[in-house]
Simulated assay, not measured.
Amino acid sequence: MSALRAGERKAVLALGSNLGDRAREIDTAVSELSGTDGIRLLAFSPIVETRAVKVHGVDEFAPRYLNAVAVVATTLAPEQLLHQVNRIEADHGRVRDERWGDRTLDIDIVCHGDIVSDAPQLTLPHPRAAGRDFVLAPWLAADPDAELPGIGRVDELLAGIEDTTRPWTPGGAR
């Protein structure tokens, strides 16, 4: 992974999609992120497939998610980065009718440097990242030395929860 340049912070973005051409949604979003001023891609994880998690728990009848993690260098403040990821989600047809509902594209900011924030529009680090295998497993694949600020090493966090992710390959069984 390349080093940070002056004025940059490392941020981790979790991407997910369970509607439409899931892999294309994620790949296109990563390209759009990379093409955004103030964002530089450092690493991108392999894509994994997971069951849909809803407010009530796992929904075996909902379309499965593809998930990945992008590690980026950014000069954007957290709120500016949030604005950019929300713009990209909207461009991909993201609607927010149902909490944790099915979606064409979801991009969560997992962490932004070592910033800790409880702002109403953005909590950092992401409050549920430490218990989400679909975030931790791809993140660890992209950055084996990853650490969730103020919480712990990603490898140790993942070892403490059930990892239900499975590798995804284009054209493979779904």
Rank of each mutant, 00 (worst) to 15 (best):
P125L: 03
C111L: 06
D106M: 01
A70F: 14
P167C: 09
A43I: 01
E89F: 09
T50C: 04
R9S: 09
A6I: 03
A173L: 08
I109D: 02
A129P: 12
D143T: 08
H83W: 12
G16W: 00
K54S: 13
Y65G: 07
I39G: 11
G131T: 00
L124T: 10
W139I: 13
R103N: 08
L157P: 11
D37F: 04
R153E: 09
T28P: 03
I115H: 01
V135K: 04
K54N: 01
E60G: 00
A62S: 15
A137S: 07
R40T: 15
P138C: 13
V30W: 06
H112V: 05
W100T: 05
S17F: 01
V71H: 05
Y65W: 09
D145L: 12
S31F: 08
E8Y: 09
E79Q: 13
V154W: 07
D21N: 13
D102F: 07
P127S: 02
G150D: 09
T74R: 06
H112R: 06
W168K: 01
L124F: 06
R51N: 07
R94M: 12
I26E: 02
R94T: 07
G160L: 05
R5C: 10
T164Q: 06
S45H: 01
T28L: 11
D155H: 14
S2A: 13
A11P: 05
Q84A: 15
N86E: 08
L19W: 02
A141F: 09
Q80T: 14
H56V: 07
G93E: 08
G171Q: 05
A146L: 07
R87E: 12
G172A: 15
L136P: 01
F61Q: 15
D91H: 07
A3V: 02
D114H: 13
P125H: 03
R87M: 03
R87V: 01
G20F: 01
I26Q: 06
T123I: 14
R103E: 05
R174C: 06
L82F: 09
